[in-house]
Design a protein around this nucleic acid. Sequence first.
DNA 1: ATGGGTGCAAAGTGTTTGCAAGTAT
DNA 2: ATACTTGCAAACACTTTGCACCCAT
Lengths: 129, 129
Amino acid sequence: MEERNTRQKGMILDAVRGRCDHPTADDIYLELRARDPRISRGTVYRNLKRMAQTGEIGLVQTSPAERFDLRTDPHSHLRCCLCGRVWDAPVPYREEDDRMAEETTGFSVRGHSTVFEGVCADCRKAQEG
Amino acid sequence: MEERNTRQKGMILDAVRGRCDHPTADDIYLELRARDPRISRGTVYRNLKRMAQTGEIGLVQTSPAERFDLRTDPHSHLRCCLCGRVWDAPVPYREEDDRMAEETTGFSVRGHSTVFEGVCADCRKAQEG
DNA sequence: ATGGGTGCAAAGTGTTTGCAAGTAT
DNA sequence: ATACTTGCAAACACTTTGCACCCAT
């Protein structure tokens, strides 16, 4: 009936809040397993999913694996096609677009996600010079 | 050395161009299999991926399965969280945001994808009334 | 003590791939 | 004839889930 505070939940939330590189669930799992070899992948996935649903942490829909975010306010992201890393994008999030999207569609819009795709500085350097 | 025109490629491209509901790879596979029981899933996935890479068709990054698009110009999408269906969004695509995203990041940005999330008219009706 | 949470392993999804046979050029 | 493409099935990557035991309340 009530949500319980387990050691694992605390570790998982701390891990997400401790990094600003938009880690995948497996990134978090591997980090925690190094400290506590008993923690299970299922627990990490389960809790990250719930925390994202309740809004305790942010979620970035990326491929091939989704990523988690210490930030919980809506904002855009930048993803490198080559290395797959994700950063925050210095582009404003426009709430008015959500209203525009509702206008002629009959949708009830709860928000949008914008991901810029390109090649990051490191990968450009590595590519040629 | 050269790309060959096979019967399968033609069927796949026609199938994508014949529907405006942003089908998944499996949607296309099932449609084609009904007409030609020998076509293989691998062939459909392989060709859709290549056609999206070359720009012959569009790609919509959605979860859990990516979707394909007869339109090849950049534009936003609207996705229903409940039924998963995808539509075009009546919201302009802003190319100037791509330049803004490059400004302080060192990225070479090739474009962005925006997906609005919400509940479609049908699902809202089904939900309560 | 109760019932939500965990660990484990198996199952699920969506997608990719190795390879022998087929076919467009 | 050549080598790109297909069909098939196995492999993959990411994620979810069933279940017995555990532990926060």
